[in-house]
Nucleic acid binder design. Sequence first.
DNA 1: GTCTATAAAGCGATAGAC
DNA 2: GTCTATCGCTTTATAGAC
Lengths: 199, 199
Amino acid sequence: MARTVAERSDILPMLAETFRLHGYEGASLGLISAATGLGKGSLYHFFPGGKEEMAAAVLDEIEGWFRQHVFEPLSAGDSGAACVRAMLASVDQYFESGGRVCVLGAFALSDVRDRFATSVHRYFSAWIAALSATLVRMGHSKADAAALAEETIAGIQGALVLARALQDRRSFKRTMNRLEQRLLSPAKHEPRRRATRRT
Amino acid sequence: MARTVAERSDILPMLAETFRLHGYEGASLGLISAATGLGKGSLYHFFPGGKEEMAAAVLDEIEGWFRQHVFEPLSAGDSGAACVRAMLASVDQYFESGGRVCVLGAFALSDVRDRFATSVHRYFSAWIAALSATLVRMGHSKADAAALAEETIAGIQGALVLARALQDRRSFKRTMNRLEQRLLSPAKHEPRRRATRRT
DNA sequence: GTCTATAAAGCGATAGAC
DNA sequence: GTCTATCGCTTTATAGAC
């Protein structure tokens, strides 16, 4: 069966998986070639910029997925609590409860962080901003929402580190449950004015 | 000036810094040679097992440092609160408020995790166990202490990821402050018996 | 668009002089 | 104990046939 119709988007998932499993430096062209079933010539046809362009495309793809399935649903029409629950469920599923690593997080800790600085920065700041906005919608003050959102994203990333380190997804699950409980617990009353709603 | 007296322990810090900055795969023998000022011959004299033995020695050194300066002080004679505060201060100083990365955490996320599995696992489980014991001493139930300890270590690791990703140490500082507040807030009363002290 | 062949550089590791 | 020279292999990247 002719599979001569390969497009960039067809091989991106396998590319992403290779970078996830081996990191940037560990993902050699040999491994990539084996994972995609394409020779080096074909790879350079799709990505003239070589390995760096491949990784950049993978990061863009991942960020796009999160934007669509995690960030944007946070500002859906549903109640804030429903949005938060949906986000946590998507995250848990995406990372396979700690069985999969976050490529952006791993890149952030490695020495290629600078090379992909804008992608890495944008991914995390967009996530925090989206969650923070939802928390404001749920009644938190801006400051409380920002702190809670930051704590949540850090908690998720830390739980991924811990799950890999201890080789135990249950620790990831426990952290996700704690985060859910904290995110859904009622906002503290603001000191001076009660929750007044303007029109 | 003759500096022919090099010992393994003399070059371990520079070795550690190289692995911290570049990761396992990124830390080439060329970089290591430049960082230590030693030729490959000398490096293989101290580490016949090559790069893998160097990394293993670095991980042992780091774990030993944490054992001495972080884990053991947690069970010092001081009050639990003082121990917790001391731990957080040591951690903040060691990681330069998020400016430095955790080698063990970075290894955990990378594909060399399996090769150094026991070191990585021991480091994190020892840390959690030590903190958990202190929290029990402060009046938490075993289950609460374990959860809070796990949450704390994950929070620290996540804060390191986030600080590197956002290139902003303030996010690390904020997380450390939140963790301190949570660790020092009074233990919930256990449902059935109040805090009774035996002898 | 896909392949093989190949170039040029860097890699980890070894041998042997001093 | 330190060095240089070198081996064998892998790396990224390119060239060119099909």
